[in-house]
């Protein structure tokens, strides 16, 4: 197991190197240069030159690349010009908020969709199956920012049940925090639920035709036991993969949902960085998210080994 983990960790190194190179290159493809774009159209030549010096853009690119990597090794992602703070600090300030929405939405989405997927598979072809699958497909097709706006219209404006947006820290009021997080989490969960329900159903259908399920039935195991202990137990690996892949969707979803509900999380920071053309902040947040994505994929791979001992062998 240890050597397996070590091998997987080593394999992540070249990917991370390329990812950081891509994040560096992003700053180089800006037409003109970032100093021009950041300063705006009514800036004087001196202002632009000063900004360029501040960004280090007056030095050759290979020097900047070397400095970029040197700084990265020290955990330094650069300095935000609009927010006048270190990018690393800004990111770590926002992480708990985004992470809590993400976890909240997964706590809703994962159990629900596994139950729905199992039910749809068990009663394949029935009206229940059709209804669940229709809802699931709708879940992956509907744009989450639109669902968010419609949810505000319904739950906040019409019914007045939940706040239309904003964020209440749990240190201030736990109830207020829960109220402010519920709609974003539900909206973030719609697409996840759709995807996960579909995967669970198709994996379960595949497992239900396997010999070991027939054997379990033949030896008289209860239907619940057949489905849970035999079919679902074997369908769990692809399901876990998808839960891992959902991370990417949650991050993108968070960008949109935090914007809709004015939640000051990591996603809102990225949008803010883009709209104010704060390139060091764009670069830093993207690199952070991509690295986190690589690590989540790594954890997913390692969890296979946990769920399926056969993978550990080779």
């Amino acid at each position: 197991m240890t050597s397996y983990i070590a091998r997987r960790l080593l394999a992540a190194v070249p990917v991370l190197l390329l990812v950081s190179l891509l994040a560096f290159l992003l700053m180089q493809i800006v037409p003109g240069d970032p100093a021009h774009a950041m300063a705006g159209s009514d800036a004087s030549v001196e202002e632009i030159n000063e900004l360029r010096r501040g960004l280090g853009l007056d030095r050759p690119w290979h020097l900047r690349l070397a400095e970029w990597y040197l700084a990265l090794l020290q955990g330094d992602l650069g300095h935000s010009y609009t927010l006048r703070a270190d990018v690393t600090d800004l990111i770590f300030e926002r992480i708990p908020i985004t992470l809590s929405i993400a976890i909240y939405s997964m706590l809703i989405a994962v159990p629900f969709s596994i139950v729905l997927g199992v039910l749809a598979a068990r009663f394949r072809g029935s009206a229940l199956d059709l209804g669940i699958m229709g809802a699931a497909l709708l879940g992956v097709s509907v744009p989450n920012f639109w669902i968010g706006i419609m949810a505000i219209l319904f739950f906040s404006v019409q019914l007045g049940w939940l706040p239309a947006g904003g964020y209440v820290p749990p240190s201030e009021s736990v109830i207020g925090w829960l109220q402010s997080m519920t709609m974003p989490a539900l909206v973030l969960g719609t697409m996840q639920m759709g995807l996960l329900t579909r995967i669970t159903r198709s994996e379960m259908l595949e497992m239900m035709h396997k010999d070991f399920v027939r054997t379990a039935r033949a030896k008289g195991a209860s239907e619940l036991r057949v489905m849970m202990a035999h079919a679902l137990r074997n369908a769990i690996i692809p399901i876990v993969t998808v839960i891992g892949l959902l991370f990417g969707m949650i991050v993108t979803g968070a960008v949109v949902v935090e914007q809709v509900f004015s939640v000051p999380g990591l996603g809102r920071l990225i949008v803010q960085a883009i709209l104010t053309r704060d390139y060091p902040l764009i670069q830093g947040t993207l690199l952070f998210v991509a690295s986190a994505f690589v690590f989540v994929n790594l954890i997913v791979d390692l969890s296979y080994a946990f769920f399926d001992p056969r993978i550990r062998q080779n």
Binding site: V15, L18, L26, I29, P31, V251, T252, I274, R277, V294
Partner: peptide, 20 residues
């Protein structure tokens, strides 16, 4: 793989943000 390390949507946001 390196491109896929970015969630697709986020990569698209980053590119349009850079290019305009």
């Amino acid at each position: 793989d390196a491109f896929m390390a970015f969630p697709a949507m986020l990569l698209a946001i980053a590119i349009t943000a850079a290019l305009g």
